[in-house]
């Protein structure tokens, strides 16, 4: 564990708490892509199945339980509790175009051709693109509530912090995890546009609005 990874994980944790806070206080899931959230559940369930047979640490265990349960809870909030506030007509990104290629990639690129390892690779590839329906929705509506942008910023910061973590681990432990690193770089790159608007507008006190 190093500080980059710790702060990355805490940022991930914060992003979910911000999202829950947004939904609970506004009593609405407006502006949130159900597809992205459903993809995250898929990612967490596929990756954290090792919860049942591989003990890493209490930290690791608690985080996994939190990520799986909170992401399922968010789906419940969107589909049941605040269902009327979710508008599927603007959440139109075809998620199956993401899942299919990730299955194929996982079958080709994995560390061992076993079920858990292929599932792990799949979750890494899927996580790297899971934010696309959300970003697509943002692009389509051209604006976002400030709280939603804080959620995305925390999520992007988590990904960004994993990069110095890998550099640190390369020098301190001599390990490289090429699948995680390549997918992670792709994932972080997807946030570049968002961060540009976030830094130049939201953090200057303006509303998140994309140029027409």
């Amino acid at each position: 564990m190093n500080l980059f990874r710790l702060f990355g994980d805490l940022s991930h944790l914060a992003s979910i708490l911000i999202l829950l806070h947004k939904i609970q206080t506004t009593r609405s899931c407006r502006g949130i892509s159900f597809k992205t959230q459903a993809l995250y559940v898929t990612v967490f369930v596929a990756r954290y199945l090792d919860l049942f047979y591989d003990w890493v640490s209490l930290y690791n265990f608690s985080m996994k339980v939190f990520f799986i349960s909170s992401s399922i809870y968010i789906l419940y909030l969107m589909k049941v509790r605040f269902r009327p506030t979710h508008d599927p007509s603007i959440d139109t990104f075809r998620a199956e175009y993401l899942v299919g290629p990730c299955v194929v990639l996982a079958l080709i690129f994995n560390y061992k051709f076993t079920f858990p390892e292929v599932l792990w690779s799949f979750s890494i590839f899927l996580e790297s693109v899971a934010i696309l329906p959300q970003l697509f929705m943002l692009q389509r509506t051209g604006e976002a509530e400030t709280i939603t942008t804080h959620y995305l910023a925390a999520l992007g910061a988590y990904r960004a912090l994993y990069i110095p973590n890998w550099i640190y681990r390369y020098f301190s432990e001599g390990v490289v995890d090429p699948i995680a690193v390549i997918a992670g770089l792709v994932q972080t790159a997807l946030y570049v546009d968002f961060f540009y608007v976030y830094f130049t507008k939201v953090l200057q006190g303006q509303k998140f609005e994309l140029p027409a």
Binding site: R5, D9, H12, R47, D50, D54, V56, N60, M63, K64, F67, Y111, W120, Y162, N165, E173, G174, V175, V176, D177, P178, I179, A180
Partner: peptide
């Protein structure tokens, strides 16, 4: 081989 017997990152 990527150096870990298990995946220790989240």
């Amino acid at each position: 081989e990527h150096g870990h017997e298990h995946h220790d990152e989240l």
